[in-house]
Amino acid sequence: MPVVFRYRGFRFLFYSNEGDPREPVHIHVVKDGTDAKFWLWPEVIVAYNDGFDAKTLRELLVIIESRRTEIDRAWNAFFGTTD
């Protein structure tokens, strides 16, 4: 599972097996056994949440929005896509 970046103890990552057919570009955020998944396009939204409170989800949304291009590039470089 490639980690794209870390921020204040959060790991922002995706899994190398993202389904068949592969799901659209997204990022998982993990910290202390808690995780959430965010779709990147057309806007950053929570796909699922397993334990983060609302304040943390809002913070994560801001971080992901500000680094969405970086996440998208890492996804495409890993999976060899341009979508």
Rank of each mutant, 00 (worst) to 15 (best):
M1A: 10
M1W: 08
M1G: 12
V4K: 11
V4H: 08
V4G: 14
F5S: 07
R6H: 09
R8Q: 13
R8P: 10
R8S: 14
G9A: 06
G9T: 07
G9C: 03
F10N: 01
R11L: 08
F12K: 02
F12H: 03
F14H: 04
Y15D: 11
Y15H: 14
S16Q: 12
N17K: 13
E18Q: 12
E18K: 05
G19I: 06
D20H: 13
P24I: 00
P24M: 11
V25D: 02
V25Q: 05
H26F: 06
H26N: 07
H26P: 08
H28M: 14
V29S: 04
V30F: 11
K31E: 02
T34N: 12
T34Q: 14
T34H: 12
D35A: 06
D35V: 13
D35S: 07
F38I: 00
W39T: 05
W39H: 07
L40P: 02
L40Y: 00
W41D: 10
P42K: 07
E43L: 02
V46Q: 00
V46E: 02
A47K: 12
A47I: 15
Y48N: 14
Y48D: 10
Y48T: 05
N49G: 06
F52P: 02
D53G: 07
D53F: 13
A54V: 02
A54K: 09
A54E: 10
K55F: 08
T56N: 01
T56G: 01
T56D: 01
T56Q: 04
L57W: 00
R58G: 08
E59C: 01
E59T: 07
L60P: 00
L60F: 01
I63W: 02
I63L: 12
I64W: 04
I64C: 03
I64E: 02
E65M: 07
E65W: 05
E65C: 05
S66C: 09
R68H: 03
R68S: 03
E70F: 06
E70V: 05
I71W: 01
D72H: 12
R73W: 10
A74K: 08
N76P: 09
A77L: 14
F78V: 12
G80P: 09
T81R: 13
T81S: 10
T81A: 07
T82H: 15
T82Q: 13
T82P: 08
